Amino acid sequence: MKLDQLKVLRAVVETGAVKTAAERLNRTQPAISQALKALEFQTGTELFDRSGYRLELTPVGKRVYLQSLRVLTEAEDLGQLIRHFENGQEETITIAVDASTDLNALTPVLFKLQTTFPETRVVLRPEVLSGAIQAVTSGTAAIAVSPMSSIMLEDEGLEYIPLGTSTLRNVAAPSLWEAMGNPTRLSDMRRFHQVIASDSGQAGGLFDRELGVQKGQRRWYVGDLNTKKHLLIAGLGWGRLPEHMIAKELHQGHLREIDLPHTHLAFDATVYAFRQSKPIIGSVAELLWKEFEALSP
């Protein structure tokens, strides 16, 4: 049994006639008829009821046809995969994405990637703080997207593209704020636990110390921002989260921003896409980089 015979079977079933199947496949009618006869000889039974104007599958023919569709689909997928690798396209590409990044901003790029290179496996690797930069410098990720300091990126010799800004705000549940007794200074908050997302990388450079954490501060550590958000809403601590993650909770009053008279806790961070300065570029990574360039303001 050959794939060509199965393609003929599919064409005849879908068109209902040998003539139209021959036109679709750009073959002669005798060639189509011969392929069907060969297939019927191999199965040992008739696949079509030829008594009517339009060819109709026999019960056995229906089972053979349905199985042939699965075989043809797998064969076509395999052919596409082989062509994908023949063209030098990456089998897998890893993108490190900082947990504070607004994924809505990346969706158009990811959609373009998926539609252009459907055979490439994409790994979105979540990172916190210095984790994204370490993923790129170690070669674990081809590209990273993260709020970052341009000075740190240049110190690491990385190539980067600014994509926009992310606003981070210190927030707490209203119940915790009341328990704090309306603090006026950061030092007034030391005895209330600050919830901190642990660095997923080997902290260095600007990350050698915990930014925004004062000495003597009671603290809890979590591994991701969703857990941190849950604890803050529950009133188990206060801490900083990106604005896009908490806009709804702030609007509904489940969280409130910590605004101290003498301390500005909120800040804007520039979000960058970055990669090694001399990367080994495949066509998938190159597409990603060009799409990020198009997003740059």
Score class of each variant (00 low, 15 high):
Ala172Ile: 03
Ala172Cys: 12
Ala172Phe: 03
Ala172Arg: 03
Ala173Glu: 02
Ala173Ser: 14
Ala173Trp: 05
Ala173Lys: 07
Ala173Leu: 02
Pro174Cys: 01
Pro174His: 03
Ser175Phe: 02
Ser175Gly: 02
Ser175Gln: 05
Ser175Arg: 10
Ser175Cys: 00
Leu176Phe: 08
Leu176Lys: 00
Leu176Pro: 05
Trp177Gly: 01
Trp177Asn: 00
Trp177Ala: 01
Trp177Gln: 01
Trp177Met: 12
Trp177Asp: 00
Trp177Val: 03
Trp177Thr: 02
Glu178Cys: 01
Glu178Leu: 11
Glu178Tyr: 00
Glu178Pro: 00
Glu178Thr: 11
Glu178Ser: 09
Ala179Val: 01
Ala179Ile: 01
Ala179Lys: 11
Met180Pro: 06
Met180Trp: 07
Met180Gly: 08
Met180Gln: 08
Gly181Tyr: 04
Gly181Pro: 02
Gly181His: 05
Asn182Glu: 10
Asn182Cys: 07
Asn182Gly: 02
Asn182Gln: 12
Asn182Tyr: 06
Pro183Phe: 10
Pro183Asp: 06
Pro183Ser: 09
Thr184Ser: 12
Thr184Lys: 15
Thr184Met: 13
Thr184Arg: 14
Arg185Lys: 14
Arg185Tyr: 13
Arg185Pro: 00
Leu186Lys: 11
Leu186Glu: 12
Leu186Cys: 02
Ser187His: 09
Ser187Trp: 09
Ser187Asn: 11
Ser187Arg: 11
Ser187Ile: 13
Ser187Met: 12
Asp188Val: 03
Asp188Phe: 06
Asp188Asn: 13
Asp188Leu: 02
Met189Trp: 08
Met189Leu: 15
Met189Arg: 08
Met189Lys: 05
Arg190Ala: 13
Arg190Asp: 00
Arg190Trp: 02
Arg191Asp: 01
Arg191Glu: 11
Arg191Cys: 01
Arg191Ser: 11
Arg191Asn: 03
Phe192Arg: 05
His193Ala: 14
His193Met: 04
His193Glu: 09
Gln194Thr: 06
Gln194Asp: 00
Gln194Asn: 07
Val195Lys: 10
Val195Thr: 10
Val195Ala: 05
Val195Gly: 02
Val195Met: 02
Val195His: 06
Val195Glu: 04
Ile196Arg: 13
Ile196Gln: 08
Ala197Pro: 07
Ala197Arg: 08
Ser198His: 03
Ser198Arg: 14
Asp199Tyr: 07
Asp199Thr: 10
Asp199Phe: 08
Asp199Cys: 05
Asp199Arg: 10
Asp199Lys: 08
Ser200Ala: 09
Gly201Trp: 07
Gly201Val: 10
Gly201His: 04
Gly201Ser: 12
Gly201Phe: 08
Gly201Tyr: 06
Gln202Pro: 00
Gln202Asn: 13
Ala203Lys: 15
Ala203Tyr: 13
Ala203Gly: 14
Gly204Thr: 14
Gly204Met: 15
Gly204Tyr: 12
Gly205Gln: 06
Gly205Val: 07
Leu206Ala: 10
Leu206Cys: 04
Leu206Thr: 14
Phe207Gly: 08
Phe207Lys: 10
Phe207Ala: 13
Phe207Glu: 05
Phe207Pro: 01
Asp208Pro: 00
Asp208Leu: 14
Asp208Arg: 15
Asp208Ala: 13
Asp208Lys: 15
Arg209Glu: 12
Arg209Ala: 06
